[in-house]
Write a protein that binds this DNA or RNA. Structure first.
Length: 206
DNA sequence: GTGAAGATTAACT
DNA sequence: GTTAATCTTCACA
């Protein structure tokens, strides 16, 4: 298993967002391990992005983690009932991150079904709140280092043992407008949502 | 201390 | 397509 290095996360947010597609998010818990392939993300570029929590450089207890270097998790509770997970990007003092919208279940599917209380595979991780519930992510995961052993992202399991570097399956990236941020005015038209074309696990609202 | 709003989801007309 | 559920966070007094 090969984790993504710190260098991966400290690049520009749009680059990281696109490159995260097809990678594997792993969460190790006392209950077991769950893994999911990232199939849909959104980029949030703090300063200048009216849709972002850190718009205008707003620095609070909640956004504090985004001002650190990339490679950390930013988890928050929305509407009092759902957790959402982000991956912090860029260098120190640049509050940007990538918002995970959908995963394709890879491992620990039984555990996901138990947490989500459904056995419909496509309904496990096809939404920001859903994937967090399925993966067992809540606010106790806020600020975790993705280079640690509990929550991290790894390369897809391909071309192992041969030494040949991982060859990812070819897929097309689709860029589209972000969702549910109509209040963001002009920023809502930015094509900062990226998904894997044709993947059945992207969120329902397309 | 008080109040308004939200990077969602599920259920309903 | 519309709306309730539900509670943390942020702005302001």
């Amino acid at each position: 298993m090969k984790k993504l290095p710190r260098d991966f996360y400290t690049r520009s947010t749009l680059e990281v967002a696109k490159d995260l597609l097809g990678k594997i998010l792993v969460h190790e818990t006392p209950e077991g391990i769950t893994k999911g392939k990232i199939v849909e993300v959104e980029a949030y570029c703090g300063v200048g992005d009216k849709g972002a929590h850190a718009y205008g450089g707003l620095r609070t207890d909640r956004t504090e983690i985004m001002f650190g270097p990339g490679g950390f998790s930013y988890v928050y509770l929305i509407y009092g009932m759902h957790s959402c997970m982000n991956i912090v990007t860029e260098k120190k003092e640049v509050p940007e991150c990538v918002f995970l919208r959908a995963l394709e279940p890879v491992e620990g599917i039984e555990l996901m079904e138990k947490r989500r209380k459904t056995d419909k595979l496509k309904n496990l991780c096809n939404g920001p709140g859903k994937l967090c519930q399925a993966m067992g992510i809540d606010r106790s995961c806020y600020g975790l280092d993705l280079l640690g052993d509990q929550l991290y992202v790894e390369y897809p399991e391909k071309g192992r043992e041969t030494g040949s570097e991982q060859e990812e399956e070819p897929f097309e990236i689709v860029a589209s407008k972000r969702i549910n941020i109509d209040y963001a005015e002009e920023a809502k038209d930015f094509l900062w949502r990226f998904s894997i074309k044709g993947n059945p696990f992207v969120s329902a609202k397309v």
